[in-house]
Amino acid sequence: MNKRKSSFTSALFVLPYFIMFMAFLVIPLLYGLYISFHDYGLLSNDRPFVGLDNYIAIFNPDSYLSSLFFEGLWNTFQFVIYSVPLLVIIGLGLALLVNSMPAKLRGFFRTVYFIPYSISVSVIAIIWLWLLDTNSGLINNYLTKMGFDPIPWLTTMPYAWISIVAATLWWTIGFNMIIFINALNEVPEDLYEASSIDGASAWQKFIHITLPSIRPIMLFVIITSTIASFNIYGQPYLMTGGGPGDSTEVLLMGIVEQAFEQRQLGSASAMAIIMALIMIIVSIIQFKISNPAKKGGEQ
């Protein structure tokens, strides 16, 4: 009896979070599934059940929905492919650079490279919109001063992608750097000492000791950067408006448009669910590629 009472009071500790978890995570998950099986107009009261029609329409090459989804997906993929390698490699490069600084300067440079991460995407996008302005932007002002033609950064290709990727790097690379700095600091010092005795160069140490030691963290950074890049929205929404043409109209923009401009919540939810599944599958593939079939018992 006492025991039951005790476990009841213990459950009360979990209850507040559990209520939030159910109300704002589990129920939305199920509700989203429900919405995707209906012709769910944002404002209408008649929302008939349509089974898998919304999903079928996405995969029917002739439908508007299909072109909205797959063009958005393709543009998102492009951004992922352009941004993730740079986010990982430059992030690691900055971490190595910060670690090579004299101890007194490390904290300073780490803070400076990390500051932009604390700022909202809308502020980031507007600052870069201004830096990249064709007629009065700082970057084109420098270009024309040096005798070059100004570049229409946000309205022509490939500059629109370059601009979006540059703004994103500036914004988020500090986060990856912090994770790498921590990983680098945890590589056992005696590994380096042993290889110094063997006469290994700095590059050899990096390839044979550093990289293998930070491998799990590398995977973590690759997966989180990929997920973050999939979720891109604010930068193209504010910087290019999805242009030139529809070439930077990413998938999340397509979903928002379908939901709030076309007011078709059913098909927008189906798009969101497929997008989420693709993101989960990509994460699993990345995980499998970097952890090829570990044998049981081995660590």
Binding site: A23, F24, L25, I27, P28, L29, Y31, G32, I35, I227, F230, N231, L252, I255, A259, L265, A268, S269, A272, I273, M275, A276, M279, I280, S283
Partner: peptide
């Protein structure tokens, strides 16, 4: 933690 938030934001809006 693995669930992409894109999946919940439209139903949350409706809720």
């Amino acid at each position: 933690l693995m669930i992409p938030w894109v999946i919940t934001f439209l139903p949350l809006y409706m809720q």
